[in-house]
Nucleic acid binder design. Structure first.
Lengths: 312, 312
DNA sequence: CTGAAAGCGCTAACAA
DNA sequence: TTGTTAGCGCTTTCAG
């Protein structure tokens, strides 16, 4: 095209307020510059309802935007691959970020089989040819246990939840392994799982632990959201933290800065993880030659005032 | 179509894992079942970065999902209507939720002029034919002032921010009006505006107020995010809340429950507002006969421990 | 009741 | 270098 006509066209386009129709372009199997965020949790508002979700989402939005992509929250109930996978194709979304898929689910393999560009967040994506972005849970748990044993604790409990997510399971497994490795006993009643469905579950769980004949001197909680509720439950029961029991969370939720006492926690770089996931997905969509792999992020311990040596 | 063939087709479709291509359908100017969320704040991650944004978004996602729509976070820099409006058309988005547009902006009028279905959140949408969803700021501020004067306060300061949003401006105006109406003086140094750009802005602002020769006995803060920082600043300065100074926020942020002391605040029903906005937008898109209007939500006071009578 | 054809706004391949 | 044309997958219209 000659420069003169080019100029004329550009000028005319401006005058007419022309803007290309992305849909028509999309029909030609060209990128729509749209990333989808999806997950299996039944409630579509889950992603904006806690610190984990909003942080991951913040990273995704930022990473997507930097690459010229918008982000769609695409929530569809998932039964199994044969019934559900097709509903993710031809939806005008260039690729999906699958957040915390469950181990027993065929969501990742099902979408991958359809050739949809995919990046998995907070779960491994072995053998499906997808990138995945995870935190080193074992390392994080080791930091917690070493911190607590360093303070002199030997009676350490672990509160997990019943979501079956990789993070939850890995943290629990790591906790058991590290305790075993250190020769510290773990009675079964020291390892309860909270049922999220009941609001009172937190209280029940904390109460059961703290009214044990031989209560733990420290509690490692699988995430900060629950840890903060445990702090409240302890206060309501008249149990002083950290004097009578130390509490450690996981996530690095800034709400833990202003609790009473401020919460010791393992920080995972959620925003960076979301950002990296979006970047990786864009690179897959744009077919840059990247070998799919698991990207592991390092957690670190933020020591605040909810931990101290056990009462003598 | 006869029932027999219908059955045959449905069966074949299932076997082939057929799923309609939404894009091709969209090209025919049919709904894509996609709502866009947009705002003018330059940072695309703003919406997931604070309580206001995530709550509104939670409502939107929920409302959209209930109506069979997905939600896209569509962030584009906005210069002015002639340059920017066209970029919102033909993007495969059925309509937009415009969150906290600024009073001086032509974003709402510009998009409305293109015939794009629109609902405005936290700003009036007068004369643009769009629905809008707002909280009754004047009512909320009146609750605060009546609560504080009821406790005996006469030296009341107001910390606002410099975002120029309707909520901020309306709360400040209402505060001045109600104080004037009650005959309570408001020295200019009792009404500072925080600059968000500096992290230290919060501290500076709180410090200036609390080191005044005649410091306020109560501070009304324009939102809970800042109010919580003011609580921290006061603690760091050795000023006791509420014994020496009472603090009230606005939003109903649950983080205020676990601060020390727990924060008194005006709750606005953000999730419900987002939900209603999504519902309204869907009704506009689907051309149900609804007369555009401003939907006002009622705030109410949540009294916690950050307020008490002033020191004598 | 069923089949064929046109067209949505764009891109890519081709012809002039 | 320019103009023309086919076709993406669907919906709608019109014939059969």
């Amino acid at each position: 095209v000659s420069e003169a006509t080019r100029q004329r066209i550009v000028k005319a386009a401006e005058e007419l307020r022309y803007s290309p129709n992305v849909i028509a372009r999309g029909l030609k199997k060209i990128r729509l510059n749209l990333l989808g965020v999806t997950f299996q949790y039944p409630d579509p508002t889950w992603i904006t309802s806690d610190y984990y979700g909003t942080s991951i989402l913040t990273g995704i939005i930022g990473g997507a935007h930097a690459a010229g992509y918008s982000t769609t929250l695409f929530h569809k109930p998932w039964r199994d691959a044969t019934q559900s996978a097709a509903g993710f194709r031809g939806q005008g979304i260039d690729g999906f970020l699958v957040v915390t898929p469950l181990p027993e689910s065929d969501m990742v393999s099902g979408l991958a089989a359809l050739g949809i560009p995919l990046v998995v967040i907070s779960a491994p994506a072995d053998h499906h040819g997808a990138h995945s972005v995870v935190v080193d849970n074992a390392k994080g748990v080791r930091l917690v246990v070493e911190h607590l044993t360093g303070l002199g604790h030997r009676r350490i409990a672990h509160i997990m939840d019943n979501t079956h997510q990789y993070d939850t399971v890995e943290r629990c497994d790591a906790f058991r392994d590290i305790l075993a490795e250190m020769g510290i006993p773990l009675p079964p009643e020291y390892n309860p799982a909270i049922d999220y469905s009941g609001i009172k579950g937190f209280y029940e769980c904390a109460r059961r632990l703290l009214t044990l004949p031989e209560p733990p001197t420290a509690i490692f909680v699988t995430n900060d959201g629950i840890a903060i509720r445990v702090l409240e439950a302890a206060r309501d029961m008249g149990v002083r933290v950290p004097q009578q029991v130390s509490v450690v969370g996981f996530d690095g939720n800034p709400n833990g800065e202003t609790t009473d006492p401020p919460l010791t926690s393992v920080r995972q770089p959620l925003v960076e993880m979301g950002q990296e996931a979006a970047r990786l997905l864009v690179s897959v969509i744009e077919e840059e030659p990247v070998v799919p792999r698991t990207h592991v992020f390092e957690p670190y311990l933020v020591t605040r005032q909810s931990t101290m040596p056990p009462p003598c």
